[in-house]
Design a binder for these strands. Structure first.
Length: 427
RNA sequence: GGUGGUGUGUCCGAGUGGCCUAAGGAGCACGCCUCGAAAGCGUGUGAGGGUUUACGCCCUCCGCGGGUUCAAAUCCCGCCACCACCGCCA
């Protein structure tokens, strides 16, 4: 959610930032509507407050007269109450509309984020080299060869878009999850295991709803008491966990992380470069998150990206870092950096982590605040989130980058103890 | 899932229709006292919103949402959460 006061005071700045993501004419129209609703809202509030004040005075005079044994003055209660009810209904409608319109607006892209879509993303860093592989096998073939993933049985169970890790594949995936958990703990993040079914308020707070309502799985009242949905990322749970709280300023930055499967509907159809475990309706991800003071945000973003990159580096994978253009980064974020890992079979880089600075956009939706040190005023925290990392993407990258001519795959050194072997071999 | 109980401010806790503009206590902050501290005394101490150059003034909030009433923390209805017991269950 954007700050209505900012729209009121510096409409041009908001408009030009939003124009990086949306059609300028659309932006202008939206801001016009918002300003008008805001104006209506405030004048209704003034009217209602005045009316209430009058009625309170009447009731007080009534009580006082009674106490003094006098006959109370007749009040205009009946008519007044009806009038007040009408005004309140009207205010309710205006506020609902305002909320809907406000919640539809995306976050303001940061200054260094350029307009445009995917094609405008900029690679800002590269680590390592693409490994020289004579005859590249893709991860689907390698998985089959090594018995790591059973796609047929996965589909049998969950339908198209699901798979089942088997044997050493399950162990590799799980070793990755556990290694990442340890690494994040070592980096000072607190480990959380949240519920996977969330109330809709959590989806709204994170900025997924209402816009991406249909992208997640909803359970409906038959199967879930209050129409919960399956979380599409742990980010939704972590943010939601702190809804309506005033965080202890001395505890900021608050650094937490969670492991959860992520459930996403994903558009039907399949890309040739998104086979195997690259894209599915359920995948594993470890997510780091920070709640910080506004002035800590820049440093936190850099620290999180660097941390996530360190993980990829310790696994020995070749990757690049991209600064996403406005149109390609998620609507709730001001700035997003992707860490993309090299996939030899397609010759493309694929996202294993997306680290974002949300400004106060999510905090405003979720009402997560801190108290200004020394002052009494509460302000919204800044939120940052990032994958550290998406294991179901790491998995194919490891297979492909570390494959050997004989079809075996070298296990990254950091995982060898956990897997009990340094090499996955065809069975 | 059933029955009963509970839900008040940072915390404990009083309040069953009207000076509740929420008692009292604890905590916290500041001041007095003190060489310093403790104790004691005094003052202050929530959130959201409207309005104002500002000081301030005003409105809303006693789990949440409705209702009754001139007037609701208090009465009525629905919901949620927690506790206890019963049932079911990995």
């Amino acid at each position: 959610m954007l700050d209505m006061e900012l729209i009121r005071k510096d409409r041009d700045a908001v408009a030009s930032a939003l124009a990086k993501r949306l059609d300028p004419a659309e932006v202008s129209q939206a801001l016009d509507e918002l300003s008008q609703l805001d104006q209506q809202r405030r004048s209704l509030i003034s009217e209602i407050d005045g009316e209430r004040q009058r009625r309170k005075a009447e009731a007080r005079a009534y009580a006082e007269a009674k106490r003094a044994g006098r006959e109370p003055e007749p009040t205009v209660a009946e008519a007044g109450r009806r009038q007040l009810a009408e005004l309140e209904t009207e205010l309710g409608q205006v506020q609902d509309q305002l909320r809907v319109r406000m919640s539809e607006l995306p976050n303001l892209p940061a200054e260094d984020v350029v307009p445009g879509g995917k094609e405008a993303n900029r690679v800002v860093k590269t680590f390592g080299e693409p490994p020289a592989i004579e005859k590249v096998r893709d991860h689907v073939e390698l998985s089959r060869l090594l018995g790591l993933v059973d796609h047929e049985r996965g589909v049998k169970l969950g339908g198209s878009g699901f798979w089942m890790y088997t044997g050493l594949g399950a162990r590799l995936e799980w070793a990755l999850v556990n290694w990442l958990i340890d690494q994040n703990i070592a980096a000072g993040y607190e480990f959380l295991l949240p519920p996977h079914l969330l109330l809709e308020t959590a989806g709204f707070a994170a900025g997924q709803f209402p816009k991406f309502y249909d992208d997640v799985y909803h359970l409906g009242r038959q199967s879930a008491p209050r129409g919960q949905f399956l979380l599409p990322t742990a980010e939704t749970a972590i943010l939601g966990a702190y809804q309506n709280e005033i965080l202890d300023t001395t505890k900021l930055p608050l650094k937490v992380f969670a492991y959860t499967p992520c459930y996403r509907r994903e558009a039907a159809g399949s890309h040739s470069d998104e086979r195997g475990t690259v894209r599915g309706h359920q995948f594993n991800k470890v997510e780091i998150f920070q709640f910080v003071l506004p002035e800590q945000a820049d440093a936190a973003l850099e620290a999180m990206v660097t941390h996530a990159e360190g993980l990829v580096e310790r696994l020995g994978l070749h990757y690049q870092r991209s600064l996403l253009a406005a149109g390609d980064s998620s609507a709730a974020m001001r700035k997003t950096l992707d860490i993309e890992v090299w996939m030899p079979s397609t010759g493309k880089y694929k996202e294993v982590s997306s680290v974002s600075w949300g400004g106060d956009y999510q905090a405003r939706r979720a009402a997560i605040r801190y108290r200004e040190p020394g002052g009494k005023q509460t302000r919204f925290v800044h939120t940052l989130n990032g994958s550290a990392l998406a294991t179901s993407r790491l998995f194919p990258a490891i297979l492909e980058q570390f494959q050997q001519p004989d079809g075996s795959v070298l296990v990254p050194e950091v995982l060898r103890d956990r897997l009990g072997t340094d090499r996955l071999t065809p069975r």
